[in-house]
Design a protein around this nucleic acid. Structure first.
Length: 773
DNA sequence: TATTTGTGCCTTTTT
DNA sequence: GGCACAAATA
């Protein structure tokens, strides 16, 4: 227990022991930053600091849990349990449960997720009669998010001619009205969006000195992980809380700042020393994670960026293998290659599924990979994308529960008032909404006294009765909540509202899976209730559960013990490490993203993202790019990413540079499903030392009519040869005979004479033809 | 009113 | 190819 300090190197140890005063730790990738944070907290407790006085802000809730576990092992669970650890959003949501009433919010305020806010915004824009093609909900919300993260309130906005002008110049002169209406609407619904959680925390700390003093006293020691990714709002909260004792330790790596798009401000880390002139700064430069090859290649990448702090990450680890870079012909080929390499790694290097991660730039890329993994029977888990709690069937049930806690939650109410269908249509809802505005009462309040309003609103008897039935049902749930636990209520809700029945009627695979999801959420509610009942400070209440739902990140609820290959975006991979990592889709306009090519700053963030991806790898890293890819339903040609050029060839091993698309020999994409390309007509072999690898060696697109083409059999994914005379099957047209084939390489058209539908020209890329004989 | 069919838009990245 | 929204129909 005492010798934990011996497990640290010199700078790590220094960072752990410098407990008093401001400290910034610049931690290179893989340099043991989590270790430092963990031991530092343990050390504080060992020195006699009350865990109650320590606040630790992590990037995910999962990271917080893991750190807590590790601290428990050093100082004991009893000590560790009083630590405040979590993400900014979850910690300050907890604080706002106590303090938000000062700002006029209910303490059971709802947290609106992205879906909710978009839905609110659409209604706002409709009400203001603004063109939703100009005021695109997503863009407008992004703008508001920017404003909030810079603590520009509605009033501040209207007092700021510069901002108003900027929005006018961007063709959105009504931005201020939209902002006000959106904020009002959320407030009336007793709801906060993600940015509000930070903005309102700032507000409460600024407006109420006694609140500030309370939390300053409470959090005498503050630690912030991933400091490079904090935004201005978070920065100010930390600054305010730490200003009394200044026992603030921030840990970060400017080279890994990848959240500028959501307001992260790299200046927070770059200017720490100006904010705290007597701050101690410690750099952790020894990488314990990766091979020399990986560290060397990563260093070369990041060296291309201008905006960065000097540092020299090095490692004493083995040289390791060179990094293979596979040039794929299509995204399917890329996926197939990755799957086959995973097999090899598992056999030759004795890796388990869980040792392997596949990282990509966009969530959409997972599909092709998933398919290839399934074919190889490799179990996998996809992180991110539409998370469990975003699914419709889950949101429906949660909306009922939300309404029980916060009757003003209009999003929840409108979502479920007619789901499952109970004959309350759009017309009725419009009337209610109008009445709600005129009477300045929430829709729920109107419904509670529907008898007294229905003539004024203009509702007929049957409709009024339906509304009354609905509100009676909701009220009965509320009553039940008083003496039953959340699981019992949720189950009752799912049954009595007809949610389960509706899903049961749908026996398509999707319907069945939705029913399973509903079952799963009920199970997880039960699990949550049981778990919270066990804990001393557990909160088995419905509002506690709902907060978890709103702030759960996908990285949080992983089944750790499952042995599966991980698939995720590079963003989600931050802070993780794997023995083997595949980075796929290294192509121009994808990674770097086409959206981020306009300014140097944007491009540098993409480069940092690539740096993060590569530095996740311990022993084996591989990269792939494809010369063509399915995007927006079309095959798009692509070129290798510029980032590949930035790595010295001594670290790399270029693979499959010669494979082309031999349209004149055996047809389109003939060789996608074989590993042996030796039979394929060769393009000029490229020698890396002669030519920069990233210069695309694209096979020239052929424009000749083709005699044959290979299509991919929809059933088993195998390639099947197609030529004139073959009998094929089409979903809509039925059976038919191929008359001829024509067209360009990736754009082959087949003329088919169908038995019942006559002659059709079909694009092979789109028509799902099955070859019968 | 509810359900089905058709269309236009789309894609970064996430708390 | 997929999803959200609009129009068309029972």
């Amino acid at each position: 227990m005492k010798n934990y300090l011996d497990e640290l190197n010199e700078p790590q140890r220094e960072a752990v022991e410098a407990t008093e005063g401001p400290l910034m730790v610049i931690a290179g990738a893989g340099s043991g930053k989590t270790r430092v944070l963990t031991f530092r907290i343990a050390h504080l407790i060992e020195k006699g600091v009350d865990p109650f006085n320590i606040l630790s802000l992590t990037f995910t809730n999962k990271a917080a849990r893991e750190m807590k576990d590790r601290i428990s092992k050093v100082v004991g669970a009893n000590e560790a349990k009083n630590l405040w650890m979590g993400t900014f959003h979850s910690v300050f949501a907890r604080i706002l449960r106590v303090e938000a009433t000062r700002l006029g919010y209910p303490s059971d305020f709802t947290i609106y997720d992205t879906q909710d806010t978009q839905s609110v915004m659409k209604k706002v824009l409709e009400e203001l009669q603004l063109d939703k093609d100009i005021y695109k909900p997503k863009q407008v919300l992004h703008r508001i998010s920017q404003l909030k993260n810079n603590l520009i309130t509605v009033r501040a906005y209207h007092n700021n001619p510069e901002l108003i002008e900027a929005d006018a110049a961007a063709m959105r002169p009504k931005m201020g009205d939209v902002y006000r209406a959106y904020v009002d609407r959320c407030f009336k619904s007793g709801a906060m969006d993600f940015d509000d959680l930070l903005l309102r925390t700032n507000e409460v700390l600024t407006r109420f000195p006694e609140v500030l003093a309370k939390y300053q006293e409470r959090f005498k020691y503050i630690l912030v992980d991933e400091y490079q990714d904090t935004n201005h709002s978070q920065y100010l909260i930390v600054k305010a809380l730490a200003s009394r004792y200044e026992n603030l330790c921030v840990v970060g790596d400017d080279a890994q700042s990848i959240y500028a798009f959501r307001g992260a401000n790299i200046r927070n880390i770059l200017s720490f020393q100006q904010d705290y002139p007597d701050a101690k700064v410690i750099a952790l430069e020894q990488n314990y994670r990766s091979t020399k090859t990986i560290v060397g290649a990563a260093n070369q990448i990041i060296a291309q960026n201008k905006d960065q702090l000097e540092k020299n990450v090095w490692t004493a680890n083995d040289q390791g293998q060179t990094i293979p870079i596979y040039r794929a012909l299509t995204d399917a080929d890329e996926a197939r290659y990755v799957a086959s390499q995973i097999w090899e790694l598992e056999i030759n290097e004795h890796l388990k599924h869980q040792d392997i991660a596949i990282l990509y730039r966009t969530n959409a890329q997972s599909r092709a990979i998933e398919e290839a993994l399934r074919k190889r029977n490799l179990p996998y888990r996809v992180f991110g994308g539409t998370s469990f709690f975003q699914r419709k069937e889950i949101k429906d049930l949660v909306a009922y529960l939300r309404l029980l806690i916060n009757q003003n939650d209009e999003e929840a109410l409108l979502r479920i008032i007619n789901y499952p269908a109970r004959g309350i249509g759009q017309t009725t809802l419009n009337k209610l909404t109008v009445a709600s505005g005129e009477l300045d009462k929430s829709i729920y309040e109107i419904l509670e006294n529907i008898g007294q309003y229905n003539s004024k609103i203009g509702l007929n008897k049957p409709t009024s009765q339906k509304l009354n039935d609905f509100i009676t049902m909701i009220k009965s749930f509320k009553v039940m909540l008083q003496n039953h636990d959340v699981y019992e209520v949720a189950t009752h809700v799912a049954k009595t509202t007809g949610l389960i029945k509706t899903l049961k009627e749908d026996d398509t695979p999707e319907g069945i899976s939705r029913l399973e999801n509903l079952q799963e959420i009920l199970n997880s509610i039960q699990g949550y209730v049981e778990e919270q009942k066990q804990l001393d400070e557990g909160d088995p209440s419905l509002s506690g559960f709902l907060e978890n739902v709103a702030l759960a990140t996908d990285a949080d609820n992983s089944d750790d013990d499952e042995n599966k290959v991980s698939l995720m975006t590079v963003h989600l991979a931050k802070g993780l490490e794997f023995p083997a990592v595949f980075i796929v889709g290294l192509e121009e306009n994808l990674f770097p993203s086409m959206m981020n090519l306009n300014t140097r700053q944007e491009l540098e963030e993409e480069r940092r993202l690539f740096y993060v991806a590569l530095t996740r790898a311990e022993k084996f890293a591989q990269m792939t790019y494809s010369v063509s890819r399915f995007r927006w339903g079309k095959i798009v040609d692509s070129e290798p990413s510029r980032f590949l050029e930035e790595i010295d060839d001594k670290y790399l091993e270029w693979k499959n540079l010669n494979a082309g698309l031999p349209i004149n020999k055996s047809g389109l994409n003939a060789n996608l499903f074989e590993d042996d390309y030796s039979q394929v007509p060769k393009f000029e072999r490229k020698k890396p030392e002669e030519k920069k690898p990233a210069t695309p060696l694209k096979p020239k697109a052929g424009f000749k009519p083709v005699a044959q083409a290979n299509i991919i059999n929809q059933m088993n994914g195998e390639s099947v040869e197609l030529s004139a005379g073959k009998i094929v099957m089409h979903d809509r047209f039925g059976k038919g005979k191929v008359i001829s084939l024509e067209g360009e390489m990736d754009n082959v058209k087949a003329t088919v004479l169908f038995d019942n539908a006559g002659e059709k020209k079909l694009l092979l890329n789109f028509a799902k033809l099955k070859v019968i004989s």
